[in-house]
Design a protein around this nucleic acid. Sequence first.
DNA 1: GTGGTCTAGACCACG
DNA 2: GTGGTCTAGACCACG
Lengths: 123, 123, 123, 123
Amino acid sequence: MVIKIDEYSDLPIYMQIRNQIVMGISSGELAAGEQLPTVRALALEIGINTMTVSKAYQILKNEGYIMTDRKNGARVRQQIEKTGVISGENKNELRRIVSEARLSGVSIEEIRDLVDGYYYGKI
Amino acid sequence: MVIKIDEYSDLPIYMQIRNQIVMGISSGELAAGEQLPTVRALALEIGINTMTVSKAYQILKNEGYIMTDRKNGARVRQQIEKTGVISGENKNELRRIVSEARLSGVSIEEIRDLVDGYYYGKI
Amino acid sequence: MVIKIDEYSDLPIYMQIRNQIVMGISSGELAAGEQLPTVRALALEIGINTMTVSKAYQILKNEGYIMTDRKNGARVRQQIEKTGVISGENKNELRRIVSEARLSGVSIEEIRDLVDGYYYGKI
Amino acid sequence: MVIKIDEYSDLPIYMQIRNQIVMGISSGELAAGEQLPTVRALALEIGINTMTVSKAYQILKNEGYIMTDRKNGARVRQQIEKTGVISGENKNELRRIVSEARLSGVSIEEIRDLVDGYYYGKI
DNA sequence: GTGGTCTAGACCACG
DNA sequence: GTGGTCTAGACCACG
């Protein structure tokens, strides 16, 4: 899986990495149990500090998306905990995005299509 | 309209204010042409510095959501420009949120309902 | 001549009035010697304070564009002083505008056409 | 690149900085990708507060002229978006300047030469 | 070391 | 009375 850093984004690099891996897992591009690149390899590939990649992996581990061990490096978890709920923070963000879209004249259908596309990984 | 600041949020205070006002406009809680609290009044109410409120208002002004003049203070714009599109940044965020929800076992129906609720201001 | 105030502009109202009258004189819409509306009449028409109109007229008078007397009110000057030069401030502004246009990919021809149009009052 | 603040100008300091950097990019004095002075360094050099410089940089960032990151400081963007149009505000300003120049007896040739000089960076 | 956020306080122009 | 600008100074996250 290719990680692309947007140097113009306000999002910290470690968060961009974290987000792309989460989306990769959700879309199936990263399969359960699949090996992630080593911290060093990914840092070298992207051209950033190993500390930054390490921070991204640490977050993913804390969130239960990946697991790490000394021998095998990092791998996507076989079972990701299904809380069945959207976090309050994500709900706030979702509401903000829908509000802005609505005020920009975007129809509900367009938003639904976008959401469906993301959910079913067609995009 | 009551602005509530979450002091534990990573979001800067001025951005929390900005977001809540945008959502207030979208939901209709803030009508077109409606007067916003003065910079000083809102700062006092929230218990923050006037500069922070001022920054939020200036962003809203730049984005075309409100207008300010020294005589009348800040007011919701009568006509908000309808670009008809969702910004790339918001699309990325939407995709991230949907991905995380999906991995948490949230059904597409639940997300759609949430989106509809936000769009039609029932929440 | 109709004065239109842009309530969304950052430019103070008195400056918007001043600018429109200057442009009106330059385009010929306001002839030499022509009577301007009284301060009260213009303030009433635009829906603003008489002080604001008065300030605009004062500036125009100081700049030599108009003259006022108690009997006849304000009139466009017969002879506007021809210094033959562009003020340093206007040169700076012109340079800024040309720079921004250039960086936006606007061709020199387009700018020239615009300038010509303004100069010959075809716009 | 040397930034010079005119303390007698009506233009806010942050806007003077912003304008000079935009003109520096347009003239080529500031190359694509070139490092700008740090917020602290420029503030010290000009003798103003860091907040004021920071505000200038944030505007430039929002407008797409520069990018900032905490590691490398601020740099001129490699690709500046070419909208191909002059903003309505700049058109108004241009018209005002041309009108004033015309009334001062400045010939169209002189204005054209000035515009050409600014466009081709000969000044 | 860098930019980003925030405060407390001051002064100003506009209307 | 209003928003806008600016200062001096502090603290923080990122890398």
